[in-house]
Write a protein that binds this DNA or RNA. Sequence first.
DNA 1: TCAAAAATTTAAAACGGTTTGGGACATTTG
DNA 2: CAAATGTCCCAAACCGTTTTAAATTTTTGA
Lengths: 340, 340
Amino acid sequence: MKLREFAQQLGLSPTTVSRALSGYPEVSEKTRKRVAEEAARLGYRPNINAVRLVTGRAGAIGVVMGRSGEFHFSEFMGGLAERLGAEDIDILVSPMDDKNPTGEIQLYSRLAVSGRVDAVIVHSPEPNDERIALLHKLGMPFLVHGRSDIDVPHAWLDIDNEGAIRRATSHLIDLGHRRIAMINGRQGRTFSLHRDKGYRDALEARGIPFDPRLVAHGNFTDELGFRFARSFLEQTPRPTAFVAGSMMTALGIYRAARSMGLEIGREVSVIAHDDVFPYLTAENMVPSLSATRSSMRAAGARSADLVLQLLSGRPTEEVHELWPVELILRESTAPPPQNG
Amino acid sequence: MKLREFAQQLGLSPTTVSRALSGYPEVSEKTRKRVAEEAARLGYRPNINAVRLVTGRAGAIGVVMGRSGEFHFSEFMGGLAERLGAEDIDILVSPMDDKNPTGEIQLYSRLAVSGRVDAVIVHSPEPNDERIALLHKLGMPFLVHGRSDIDVPHAWLDIDNEGAIRRATSHLIDLGHRRIAMINGRQGRTFSLHRDKGYRDALEARGIPFDPRLVAHGNFTDELGFRFARSFLEQTPRPTAFVAGSMMTALGIYRAARSMGLEIGREVSVIAHDDVFPYLTAENMVPSLSATRSSMRAAGARSADLVLQLLSGRPTEEVHELWPVELILRESTAPPPQNG
DNA sequence: TCAAAAATTTAAAACGGTTTGGGACATTTG
DNA sequence: CAAATGTCCCAAACCGTTTTAAATTTTTGA
């Protein structure tokens, strides 16, 4: 049903009906109520594409999905969707070809120019992130999930990676560990750098020399966790503790330790960062996994809020949110063995 | 830049330009080429919302995302996106509140009526799936990922769950196992039923009585894998083998076996279904995990193809695809212990 | 009571494209 | 060489809303 017909049935003009439905003040309360009721009864809904054309708004926000196994992606999306479902705003997912970095910038460019989205969410930024510069230049509103050092104003939501890893590392030092390995995220991402810094600062604060042979970078996969852990554990003296970038990494570390006959929580301590997944929980691992913890789903939900605020005019400079991270100690951390 | 201005710069009428860009035959090859080149050079792109309004097409397909930990969701999406990125079609994600089943049907209804999408993909259907009936009634094209017994024509893409589990179970029987436990997916989903059937048929074919105390249903989480496996292993006699619905379930089973001092691959065999994740691979587990295997990402990509075919008029009845499933044997399966 | 002000409602002009129905020109046919 | 056939191109109508500017009705104030 079109607005025209609907209005006719009500004996009103299209204008009045449109205004009544959009909550303009120029329409009397009585009329508004009648229109709302009849719309519900007759099932009238404005044609979304006509609305989009005339308002110039897309009614959607864009998210670019990396190809390489991002298992936290669906949690973030879940949070986003949860919050955006209430508004009448869609989530538009674009795929990215990780293998072709030039493609990425084109992708963002297309997304921004195409008019399909009103805003974009940028993930896993780098300190000098081209995408941020591009979106700023194009005037497309965007929220960065993470942070960047780039000299371009950008709204962001991030967790305190540096503080989290500093605390985790400090805790391991407090327990008596001196050789602490770290398996971090992909080289070059801001969050990896922040975690590196937290780790180094914690060591430095206690006068423990930084050993580059104890730090590795890579995707958050079980396999890399295993391979790095394995190669670290083969060093002599071997590390007595690990700081892991993700739950999957931790799985790999557990596996590596076991494969070498080492008992987690006694001979090797592990703290991982946990994004909180319904299907894999740190508490249930054996031994239960000590973790720095921050809900990815909550971040998604909050990101939706912030994007909506940006769109309704809140200035970019105001939208910066840094979330603290919990440190939850469980069985996987303990003092190092005496003859470590 | 608008069509008007762009056409003017070319010294052509908007009509001709529009036709040239849309590949109509009434335009000479020479003109078409010139228009295409200039469009690229000047960066002209038709306003997507105007196109949508006038053509009545949404240029997007919808996917409903369940709330409960669906870690395979992002793999499916990845495949979908990969294929749809080439076309000019968006993916629209809607969230679903799992706790409110009435909400689900409303959600699909809204999605269908809203005109935001040209087609919908339905996940994890049930034998008598209300959503399928609804979409059919509303005349919204849709593809079911999975199958349903409902008496409504529907296009679907599914893997041979029944055959996969039948083979997996048969293999365990061949190895000598007699008490085989199965930890399946959520009760009521068609794929769970198919797997149940495959399991029972395999037992029956070898004259092994079906014991309901060896079968459990639930979400694919590490935790449920652990809890069910644990309770099964506490039975006497205990099962000597497990068929697991997912990688996460398998993780839980490994954990349960270990927690009871049982060695996987010697005292307990495990076969799981593997949707193929970049971050957690069956091959890397210790011991490496035997698995029925089918790429979720490939299913997503193919689903995109099939939806496009539906939209371009291929009849629903023709679009049925059943994929065979590989069975890959690794270290987690072996004959049962002699005194089992 | 009546003009002015305020509150409602409406007609018409966008929004930026696609597509229908011709018209102009070039090419073939009888 | 006129008529018939193709090939390109164009003007105008239309998609279904929102919004501006104007018209109408109601309320207010002297």
